[in-house]
Design a protein around this nucleic acid. Structure first.
Lengths: 135, 135
DNA sequence: CCGGTTTTGACAACCATTTTCATTTACGCG
DNA sequence: CGCGTAAATGAAAATGGTTGTCAAAACCGG
């Protein structure tokens, strides 16, 4: 029912890290695809709803999406320079979150965990550092 | 140099959980304070920069702020219903993040961890559940 | 009181995201 | 095959939080 949605998904699959909706849209247009921004957004939301892609928010509030290797619950280690992403699993963290939650009487516990860093290649390629405001 | 900034800080201090900028602004105006939205934003940013308040983004991209009990690094357990917040420390998680990062050759590692749940009181007070899209 | 700097705030500008709504496409059915 | 309804699409407008602009107001030292 939607080759557009598949097209969007395809773009994500062939991308390394997280891409923004606008970004995906721009690339598709650049490739000559006839698609509207609205449709890209809708496709991305649908994909996210069905768990085919991961979503997360950048610091400036933009939503970024990425095709996931697995449908399982996992977290990301993202290079703040090039956006390269590594999927990581952390059973310990899952358990920790659950525990902390229950200890305080919370139920239906979910959590978000994202790790940011500078990957090896980017660290080597000397570029102006973005001074982290706080540890 | 800014009793406005202190005023903003005060609002946060007397609040239970995280508040949005618009929210803080509305409350201050309601209390009769003569302050502009712009100033509230600036105060909030300044406070965040100096580490006096914590910032995090809600799922819909809104920034929310909260006066922190401690200036130390910590995470939050937030009730998705009433917004009540508990500050939690998780040395294990910090270490885990560091480890995962280094294992993949990443440096300058930072991370975000937020736990969401429904607190005891809210769980009791039956309200329509917000179906979580994914676990 | 004066010049200079900082802070403030009304308002416009931004920009990602959403909504609206009319058009197009897909498809089942007679 | 032709028609009708429903789903999909996309251009443009609306939203809404946040940021930028800029002139007026508050401060400050002299």
């Amino acid at each position: 029912m939607s080759n557009r949605r598949d097209a969007v998904h395809a773009i994500l699959r062939q991308s390394e890290g997280f891409r923004s909706a606008q970004d995906v849209y721009a690339e598709m247009r650049a490739e000559g695809a006839k698609i509207g921004l609205t449709t890209v957004y809708r496709a991305l939301q649908a994909l996210a709803d069905t768990g085919h892609v991961d979503v997360l928010r950048t610091d400036d509030g933009e939503s970024v999406y990425r095709a996931c290797a697995s449908g399982d619950h996992h977290h990301h280690l993202v290079c703040r320079r090039c956006g390269r992403t590594v999927e990581v699993a952390g059973p310990a963290v899952e358990r920790w979150a659950e525990t902390i939650g229950s200890e305080h009487g919370f139920t239906e516990i979910t959590h978000t965990v994202e790790i940011f860093g500078t990957c090896g290649s980017c660290a080597t390629a000397a570029k102006p550092l973005r001074t982290p405001s706080r540890a």
